[in-house]
Amino acid sequence: MEEPQLLERFEAHVAAEGKIEPDSWMPDAYRKTLVRQISQHAHSEIIGMQPEGNWLTRAPSLRRKAILLAKVQDEAGHGLYLYAAAETLGTSRDEMIDALLDGTAKYSSIFNYPTPTWADIGAIGWLVDGAAIMNQVPLCRCSYGPYARAMKRVCKEESFHQRQGFDILVTLCRGTDEQRAMAQDALNRWWWPSLMMFGPHDADSQHSATSMRWRIKRFTNDELRQRFVDVTAPQAAFLGLRIPDDELAYDEATGHWRFGEPDWDEFHRVLSGDGPCNAERIERRTRAHVEGAWVREAAEAYAAKHSETTAA
């Protein structure tokens, strides 16, 4: 079949909510968009282990430590589901990891912020995982089968992450003045970066229109951001914390919360590599990759030797 005919058939198929599988014909641009998006998503899960891993040895109780360990392990699992989904598009795991380490691939800017206090672990679960859920639930219906299936698995596990974060903050907010102040300080630092997780305004978003047409994306950045503010504002009120935005107000007429403008210069600065922890995150990931090389080599050598023995 001629390419224009294939393209026409593909567009009609996705427009009718048909699914695309690894062996289906797809336009190069669709493949590229998905590799970029899924691998960035995988990298975010892997780099996202670091800010929380920072507190594994200092969690305030054995129970909190076991929970945090399980959560960080989930993040590694999510990274692996997503790398596997991206690999079905013909890009190797090694290529993706090289692109992360040499800086050509991006990951979510949120993970370039530091976690100086235990309350940050609560704020990450509540806000960062909360924002991630908003983004990820619609991806369960993405037109690309392997990505949609990976996202269903991720979303099922992500609700635990959000609730454990909120649980940490509930405990702190019912505690001493000092603990409440720590929770407030974490909200002050994580609120705006969390809103930035939804990406630039729709008008400034490069890939949005095509991704919507291809049923990769279901809602625009601004729609999801609004939905996040609408569900989160009452939760902050329950905690007795103040969202650091003077413009935040409930609009009776629309039933939505009005909110202020994130600092987009900061967003672009952090995304382009100049955030508080960008260098540290990549340095640490590179070190883990290099220091783990002998394990991968040993496993290969053992497998090769073993297959020789069984073949003989």
């Binding site: 596997a84 299936r149 496993a299």
Partner: peptide, 8 residues
């Protein structure tokens, strides 16, 4: 359910 990398 999905795939995995492993040496053996």
């Amino acid at each position: 359910v999905g795939s995995i990398h492993a040496a053996d």
